[in-house]
Amino acid sequence: MLEIKNLHVKLEEEDKQILKGVDLTVKAGEVHAIMGPNGSGKSTLSYVLAGREGYEVTEGSARLAGEELLEMEPEERAAAGLFLAFQYPVEIPGVGNMTFLRTAVNAQRKARGEEEMSAGDFLKVVREKAKKLKIDAEMLKRPVNVGFSGGEKKRNEILQMAMLEPKMCILDETDSGLDVDAMKLVSDGVNALRDEGRAFLVITHYQRLLDHIRPDVVHIMAAGRIIKTGGPELALEVEHNGYADILAEVQ
């Protein structure tokens, strides 16, 4: 599903190399987790995949279902099935959450040559999905993420994901700032979407989330590289011993 090869990324404005050769392959149906110390480049990786400006790819490639992502506009990547749940969801005053969701759903459908969703159908679907995430009607009416608590913002990301039904979902620290109940809601939301045709890349610091969303593969990222890959036991090791041992072992 997602095939990243030898990805090197630097900041556009500065001479600072952030990703120094990332290799990562996620197959359809799989859940991969990325863990790693702060500043190791996890968010940068997710932003570069989603097409945010400010980064320069100096080497390497990233393919989604065989298509080169790095040459597409952000909206084309989304239409191709990529979704990033932001570490810091963005507040957009003046744009209603519902308008935003509907515009996004229909823009993607249009880009794929599918029929747009009618207002009535959309409303029905969004209400049902929102209910599962305990997002009330009031929150749907408010401007995007404005006045939302940290947890509400994260649940709103999952609602967007549920509405857009992407093939490749990247979750960047979606668990940070969540209490136990919210973590459960978010995990249930993710698990409900798990299926053969869909893959997940879950960036997290904590084993907690991985108790709910069982990963198939765990990667450790440090200083712009994936330095170790293993099974779910790797996450437990990090939980118990931190990154120091793994970093030492690699060096």
């Binding site: 989603a50 097409g51 945010r52 400006e53 506009e73 952000p74 909206e75 990547r77 989304a78 239409a79 990033l84 932001f86 969801p89 963005v90 507040e91 957009i92 744009v95 935003f100 515009t103 996004a104 759903v105 823009a107 993607q108 880009a111 967007q160 857009l164």
Partner: peptide, 13 residues
């Protein structure tokens, strides 16, 4: 930042 957020959800620029 808001512009990128919208585009990342598939809304054309």
């Amino acid at each position: 930042v808001a512009l990128f957020y919208l585009r990342s959800r598939g809304v054309p620029e």
